[in-house]
Amino acid sequence: MKERSDAELVILARSGDAASFGELVARYLRPAYSVALSVIGRHQDAEDAVQESFMVALERLEECRNPDRFAGWVLAIVRNRSRNLIRRESLRRGDEIPANASSPSPSPERAADISALRSRLTEALNTLSEVQREIVLLHDLEGWKHVEIAEKLGMPSGTVRSHLHFARKALRVQLAEWKDYRKGG
């Protein structure tokens, strides 16, 4: 079956079609998280920003004048919402989505490793500019192509490549000491 375009889904979601809105959420949940993380830098707050942003987007769907460009529109909401969250310093903490029973927790050693790596990565990412973080996360974490990022963030493809190049270069320097990184993961 042909995949529905963002514009079709937005129009249906405006009438309250839950499946269409659900599809939009599924498409842009992870990129939204990457954007929020690039702005806020903390998992829990990024998660909150993403949830709130999708609520705001749903409430303001009529303001999305060009539904074909829903991705750029919703990511802009995420970015603004994340900045507002930081500004207001009203970030909620310690209220993560409860993991269900079928999700095995990592072993203490592995959890410690992941935690250490994440801290190192967060430090490294914090040395980048916000737009560099956003692009490197969308590209290397989310797997978006240069052209997709350019189109959805509304910037020239060359600019995206340039930001990605400098972001990776900076990350390499920052992560050079990380032994797992040097071993190749």
Binding site: L29, R30, Y33, L37, H43, E47, I97, A99, N100, S102, S103, P104, S105, P106, A111, I114, L117, R118, L121, T122, L125, V136, L137, D140, L141, R168, L171, R172, L175, W178, D180, Y181, R182, G184, G185
Partner: peptide, 19 residues
Amino acid sequence: GIRRALRAMDPEYERPGYW
């Protein structure tokens, strides 16, 4: 290597079913 390292930033990496 950066991509592999960045996977640690994916919440699913640590908590399957997160998304």
